[in-house]
């Protein structure tokens, strides 16, 4: 039974089927499977898709589809972890969002997808995220990395506002900060005191690994 559930979970990810992924995650909980082992199966599956993308055999919509399936299954398993009082084993946790005034979603979604595929636990706060919500998430989730996106030149300075608030709250040293988006560049990232910047979603993953020393 356990092997069948894990196989089907992997299949759901590799067939980009969020409904099946959620269903088999539910079955895993029902059948009292080891939750971290189940999460590991999901990660294995998405790595396979990620590797296929890396080899040039699969394409961006495949990777996003696989990540969506994984994202559909994860909360069900995390809830069970909480109930059992266990902790999740992940490469690292990233809190991610597009800053206040900016509602551009695509770049951030791609970064989320690539980070998820790498094995990071990604908390996506969405778009138009104010400094207070970033701070709240940093306090609550204690992530390794805070990642902020800004497409517009006009909203990029909001990244600075968030970093300043983190400093004021004494939280700046507890989290690495990466910034991205079309409006951002290395000079700007350095000026606002971020720990890293990369212009691409693929590069963001390498940056995240470097920041956590993985």
């Amino acid at each position: 039974m356990e092997a069948e559930i894990l196989e089907n979970l992997k299949k759901a990810v590799k067939e980009y089927d969020p409904e099946a992924a959620a269903e088999w995650a539910g079955r895993a909980v029902q059948e009292k499977l080891d939750v971290n082992a189940t999460l590991e199966a999901l990660t294995e599956a998405i790595r396979e898709v990620g590797d296929g993308f890396g080899r040039g055999e699969l394409w961006l919509p495949d990777l996003v589809g696989a990540a969506d399936a994984l994202i559909a299954a994860t909360p069900i398993l995390e809830e069970e972890l909480g109930k059992r009082g266990e902790k999740r084993k992940v490469l690292g946790t990233v809190v991610l969002g597009t800053v206040a005034g900016d509602i551009h979603d695509i770049g951030k979604t791609m970064v989320r997808t690539f980070l998820t595929a790498e094995g990071f636990d990604v908390v996506d706060l969405g778009v138009n995220v104010g400094a207070d919500r970033f701070i709240e998430a940093v306090k609550e989730r204690e992530p390794d990395i805070l990642a902020m996106s800004a497409l517009l030149t006009l909203t990029a300075p909001q990244q600075k506002a968030v970093i300043e608030t983190l400093e004021a709250e004494g939280l700046r040293d507890k989290v690495k900060i990466m910034v991205g988006g079309a409006a951002v560049n290395t000079q700007f990232a350095e000026q606002i005191g971020a720990d890293g910047y990369d212009p691409t979603a693929v590069g963001a993953v390498k940056l995240a690994r470097r920041l956590i020393g993985a």
């Binding site: 040039g56 961006l60 695509i106 691409t200």
Partner: peptide, 8 residues
């Protein structure tokens, strides 16, 4: 168009 290889 979205570049499905380049993610750009």
């Amino acid at each position: 168009v979205m570049g499905m290889r380049e993610a750009a």
